[in-house]
Amino acid sequence: MARIIVKDLHKEFKTNDSYSTIIKNISFTIDDGQFVCIVGPSGCGKTTILNSIAGILNYSGEIKIEDNNKEKSVKIGYVFQNSRLLNWLTIKENVLFSLQASKFDNNEANKITQKYLSLVGINEISNKYPLFCSEGEKIRTSIARALAIQPDILLMDEPFSHLDEINARNLRTELLEIWQKEKRTIVFVTHNTLEAIYMADNIYILSNIPTYILNNIIIDLPRPRNSEDSKLIDYQKIVLKEMGIL
């Protein structure tokens, strides 16, 4: 379990001979066990923020991940937008990969893999190859792979955006159930404002580039939430107003 502190995150990208600012000094804190959504227009740098937290992108500023106020080496699970499975490994071997990378012992890794394959409902396809699986199955595999290492932080980059509505709804509910059970800190990026409101404790709303935080909206609705609840629409109006759409 971990707390993420982002301070003055600033990111520029080089285009031809000049630099353009994508992210302009963003600061925010995500508390231990929170489910936070980041919404914003396309191209505003949501994925860049996730990649900076994941440590695969250089940035200026400070990103600290703390556990009980001590800085520690963190385990990060990342569910990418395009699942990024290894097509030459079976579903089961894909989940095992994250455990092997974290140097889990073989027997234990197999047991944990079994557990998360069942949790995410893909036990029956554990011997299939990804190219023969549906988008929903691939995303579930990606989620199992991320959860298997018991990550301190789970980063999710528009994981349900390629799915049909039925699959997406089921997965949202299942993800929330897993989150309630395992209490991981989750940073969930989406461009779907209703999805954000349904899932999050609070939402960071980003502007267009150069990106800064327009506002942080706390979603004060009891869980489990009802996707037909009209209060979701009320919150959506607030978010869309902040974004300048309404």
Binding site: Y78, W88, F97
Partner: peptide, 23 residues
């Protein structure tokens, strides 16, 4: 993007070579 995935999960260079690059 797959090599990046390996790095996010802290895979060693050897594991990335064996499971991501060589295949």
């Amino acid at each position: 993007s797959l090599i990046e995935m390996g790095k996010v999960y802290n895979a060693s260079k050897y594991l990335i070579l064996k499971k991501i690059i060589i295949p």
